[in-house]
């Protein structure tokens, strides 16, 4: 399995991840090498196996519907890059 530089760029965009042009080849090589490890899995038959998402087959616990939070806006926004009038600011979003 070999990943092309084009594929790497596409994935990087999906992940909104800036990568240096000069590193694209290295990533492509590394990812291809990792994918080579994956071929080992295909040799194992798993037709009858249920996928395992969690280490323990437990069920979700449910919480009572109660409001327990008070506003901590000041504290939360004190660590924000850019806020105005209680809003988080980002570059203009166009629809």
């Amino acid at each position: 399995m070999t990943l092309s530089t084009e594929q790497v760029k596409k994935i990087a965009y999906l992940a909104r991840l800036g990568i240096d042009e000069k590193d694209v080849d290295t990533y492509a090589r590394d990812l291809s090498n990792i994918l080579d490890l994956m071929t080992q899995m295909s040799e194992t038959n798993t037709d009858e196996v249920q996928p395992m998402a969690h280490p323990m087959d437990k069920k979700q616990r449910l919480r009572a519907d109660a409001v327990l939070e008070i506003s901590q806006r000041e504290s939360f926004q004190s660590i924000a890059p850019q806020v105005d009038s209680g809003l988080y600011l980002v570059p203009k979003v166009l629809d």
């Binding site: 409001v67 939070e69 506003s71 901590q72």
Partner: peptide
């Protein structure tokens, strides 16, 4: 029409000051 959010205990009431009902 719940009192609190689906995954947190913050209020779902409409019309509050911006980001005052957004918990951690």
């Amino acid at each position: 029409a719940t009192k609190s959010k689906i995954f947190s205990s913050a209020s779902t009431a409409y019309g509050a000051e911006p980001n005052t009902q957004a918990c951690a």
